[in-house]
């Protein structure tokens, strides 16, 4: 299952400067693990010490904030798009 992941600028140093990568995963937790195995070091940036996504990072599955879905257990399917977007903007 191919899922497109949009990578924010500060994390593109892990993805060979690619803003978009494709991975296979069944949910957000798996997606983060897969990203880590493809791009070592990236998980430590996405997640805090407890393993949860950092509080200043928003993760969207097909434009919906995963906190309005099933959090890191939000299921993903072929063709879905996941965006990782820094939260600190606006106002």
């Amino acid at each position: 299952m191919a899922i497109t992941v949009l990578i924010p600028t500060p994390l593109q140093k892990f993805t060979n400067n690619e803003a978009k990568v494709e991975v296979d995963s069944g949910n957000i937790t798996e997606l983060i693990e897969t990203l880590e195995s493809n791009f070592p070091g990236i998980k430590q940036r996405i997640c805090d010490e407890s393993g949860a996504p950092r509080r200043f990072l928003n993760i969207y599955a097909n434009t919906e904030d995963i906190r309005f879905l099933d959090g890191v257990n939000t299921e993903l399917k072929d063709g879905d798009e996941v965006s990782i977007v820094p939260a600190v903007a606006g106002g």
Binding site: L6, P8, V85, P86, A89
Partner: peptide, 22 residues
């Protein structure tokens, strides 16, 4: 607004504009 903000975060990354609140 939150959706607008998110779109702008993506545009700011690629267009090289000065987004006052990004």
């Amino acid at each position: 607004y939150d959706q607008v903000n998110r779109l702008c975060s993506e545009v700011a990354n690629t267009y090289g504009w000065g987004f006052v609140n990004i």
